[in-house]
Design a protein around this nucleic acid. Structure first.
Length: 283
DNA sequence: CTCAGTGTTCAGTG
DNA sequence: TCACTGAACACTGA
C-alpha cells in the first residue's frame, strides 16, 4: 500500500478516500453530499460487527436507514454524519482504516464492509473498516451529543484569534505535537497534518505548548489554516499537495531521508506517535 | 515471525 | 479537576 496516497481514481473504478484526517473526511463528505443528497435509500445491508457497530442491533441500524431520504452530509473534525428526513441519524468515525466507497456493481463491495446503502438510481455506497477502530452510531442529534459535541475547534470552520489560541496553549505543558493531536482542542488534526503544520511553522514538535511566543502562536495558527485549506482545496489528493510539503518525503524511513529542500528528516516517537520532523528547520 | 501503523480510550499518576 | 503518559484495542501488510 502506498501510505498516504489519496487517489483520484478513474471513473470506471470505485472511489474511496484514504487517511481519515480532516481533509480526507471532508473530501468524503463532499462526495457523499454530491451522490446522496436528495436521494432515497432503497435497501440497506449491515454486517454484524459487535465492535464497529457497538451497542446497536444490525436490524435497528438498517431500519433507521431504509426508505429514508438523505438531506445532507455533515462533518466536524474527523467525524461525519448524514442528515436524514427522519431521526435518528447515522454518525461515522473512521478510526485508522475506516473509509467510504462509491460504486455501482455489487462485485465492487469493499472487502471489510460494515454497512452498504443502495440508493434510488442504483448507486451504492459502503462504509468499510479493516482494523475495526472505527464506529457507526445512531443519534438523535449527532452534533450535540458526544463524541462530536466534545470536539474543539475545527480548523476549516475557523480557529480562535491568536490571543485566544495562546490562552489555550498557555495551560499545556505537553509537547506541541501531542497538543496538536488533542481533538478537544483541534478537531480533525491527525498525525500527518500535525507534522506538516509544525514543519511549515518551523516549530519543533518537542516544544512545550506553553512556551510559544505570540509570534510563534501566530505562525502555528497560520500554518494550521493553510495546510488544512490547501489539502481540502485539492480534495485531499496528496499527489496535488505542493511539492515542498514534508508529506511527500516523511515516510522515507531509511536513515538519511531528505525533504524536497534536501533537509534531513528525523523520525522519533513524540506524544506517543511516530513523528517526522526536520531539526535544521524546526525549533 | 516480528513489528509498525493515518486513532481513540482508559487507567494510573501527579 | 485538570493534564499527562503509556498501554490497550484489532488487524493488515511490509
Amino acid at each position: 500500500m502506498a501510505r498516504g496516497r489519496a487517489r483520484s481514481g478513474r471513473p470506471s473504478r470505485p472511489w474511496q478516500a484514504e487517511l481519515p484526517e480532516l481533509p480526507e473526511v471532508e473530501a468524503t463528505r463532499r462526495r457523499l453530499q454530491r451522490s446522496l443528497a436528495g436521494r432515497r435509500v432503497i435497501a440497506v445491508a449491515v454486517r454484524d460487527d459487535p465492535i464497529v457497530i457497538a451497542g446497536l442491533a444490525p436490524r435497528v441500524l438498517a431500519a433507521a436507514l431504509r426508505g429514508r431520504r438523505v438531506r445532507a452530509a455533515r462533518r466536524r473534525g474527523k467525524h461525519l454524519w448524514l442528515e436524514l428526513d427522519r431521526r435518528p441519524w447515522p454518525a461515522f468515525h473512521f478510526g485508522m482504516t475506516g473509509r467510504f466507497s462509491f460504486y455501482r456493481d455489487e462485485a465492487d463491495r469493499p472487502r471489510f464492509w460494515k454497512l452498504e446503502l443502495i440508493m434510488d438510481g442504483g448507486r451504492r455506497v459502503a462504509y468499510a473498516d479493516a482494523r475495526r477502530f472505527g464506529r457507526i452510531r445512531l443519534q438523535q442529534d449527532p452534533a450535540r451529543e458526544p463524541p462530536i459535541a466534545l470536539l474543539g475547534f475545527d480548523p476549516l470552520e475557523g480557529l480562535p484569534s491568536a490571543p485566544d489560541l495562546a490562552a489555550h496553549l498557555a495551560r499545556r505543558k505537553a509537547p506541541l505535537k501531542a497538543v496538536l493531536l488533542d481533538q478537544s482542542l483541534f478537531a480533525g488534526v491527525g498525525n500527518w497534518v500535525a507534522d506538516e503544520v509544525l514543519y511549515q511553522a518551523r516549530l519543533s514538535p518537542h516544544r512545550e505548548a506553553r512556551s510559544l511566543s505570540p509570534a510563534e502562536v501566530r505562525r502555528l495558527r497560520r500554518s494550521l489554516q493553510s495546510v488544512i485549506a490547501r489539502a481540502v482545496s485539492v480534495n485531499a489528493d496528496s499527489d496535488r499537495f505542493p511539492t515542498t510539503w514534508l508529506f511527500h518525503t516523511r515516510w522515507g524511513r531509511r536513515a538519511g531521508a531528505l525533504t524536497a529542500r534536501d533537509e534531513a528528516i528525523v523520525h522519533e516517537t513524540i506524544g506517543g506517535r511516530t513523528t517526522a520532523w526536520v531539526p535544521s528547520r524546526q525549533s
